[in-house]
Design a binder for these strands. Sequence first.
DNA 1: CCGGCTTCTTCAACAGCGATGGAGAAAAGT
DNA 2: ACTTTTCTCCATCGCTGTTGAAGAAGCCGG
Lengths: 201, 201
Amino acid sequence: MEKSRITLTMSESGAGRRGRWRSGEESRRRILDAARARFTSHGYDIVTVRSIAADAGVDPAMIHYFFGSKDKLFAAALEGPVSPRGPLDDLLAEGLDGAAARIVRGFLAAFDEAGMGPLALLRSGQPPEMVREYVEREFTTRLASHLQGPDTALRAQLITAQLLGLALARYGLRLPGPATASPEDLVTWYAPLIQPLLDTP
Amino acid sequence: MEKSRITLTMSESGAGRRGRWRSGEESRRRILDAARARFTSHGYDIVTVRSIAADAGVDPAMIHYFFGSKDKLFAAALEGPVSPRGPLDDLLAEGLDGAAARIVRGFLAAFDEAGMGPLALLRSGQPPEMVREYVEREFTTRLASHLQGPDTALRAQLITAQLLGLALARYGLRLPGPATASPEDLVTWYAPLIQPLLDTP
DNA sequence: CCGGCTTCTTCAACAGCGATGGAGAAAAGT
DNA sequence: ACTTTTCTCCATCGCTGTTGAAGAAGCCGG
């Protein structure tokens, strides 16, 4: 059953046959889909390049041909579907009153939709510079730009810490309380702990 | 330089020669020391069994002879030096007024001393059941037993989430603010966000 | 003193991992 | 028909954690 698919190179699925060069686009998409599925449900190091290749019906070497490395594939897989920029700006555009509740609510909704994929970021190999850059660029600095008063950067980063901890407890460690509570309950409990950092001290 | 030490088997260091059978105890201790040094300064998956063995001047197979697996060595290495039970009980014995400040202060002190070792727990292979059990047994339930009012378990777990987030931001991601701020500054900022969960609502 | 015993140590090997380089096939361009 | 570009597969590398078996090294009952 394993070695069945040999040299078929799609052939059928004639929908968009014309236009693209050959099957490269298709293979790339299938790899990306398989990677997304695996990475968002299991941790970074548990998922193997070879398993993704098997899911996509593709040779493991092709993953390096298209993406260069496991890290870059991970980055590519987590790039599209999870981008907190737009939603965060929308949330903050409504003003800072009660923004903590909206942030926690949106944050939980995003994670509930995307699985623990974003958390797998924390386990993606390497020193954490890449992750820190991502978090700062996509979240912390944008949040800080909406704050007023002193220490906006530090306050935004502490908010990030709080949200990170909540996500880790709920989706990573699965502490029974945070893991089973409804999003609204968590908003009720947790938002008041964040709001003070949003308000100008 | 690598293959220099062959069949020396301690011989000297005659301090405690009598009593122990042979050099097993010594090797075990050296492995544990090397493991602690590596695990507390780098992440779990970055550290290799072979590197620990090289540090300890020992064959990699001995690690499995003494400890069985990398996971168990990790657990053994992180067992003794990091145990939040005693300090936490002492902190809470002084009452809940201002306990958040004392908890944050003690938490940061413990991490500053132990390096990011405890955080490496989060990256130690496997599903998170083992880690969750450890965190609950050593921290969350003991904290909850000191709380009063409703939802003590959930409140204790949310405090755990906040501390986890702070540690992750400071020692894991190294967000510039939390990473460079002094412990007392972090206490000033963060403790007021935790105290509400300690107080009876 | 000597075999047997337990304990420690080493060596060689295994399967699996991410990654690489080169050969081959097949469409596109000329 | 040819070259070029793109895609695919295969064999292989060095590394990882882990295992099994064989070899030294102390101890103990005869």
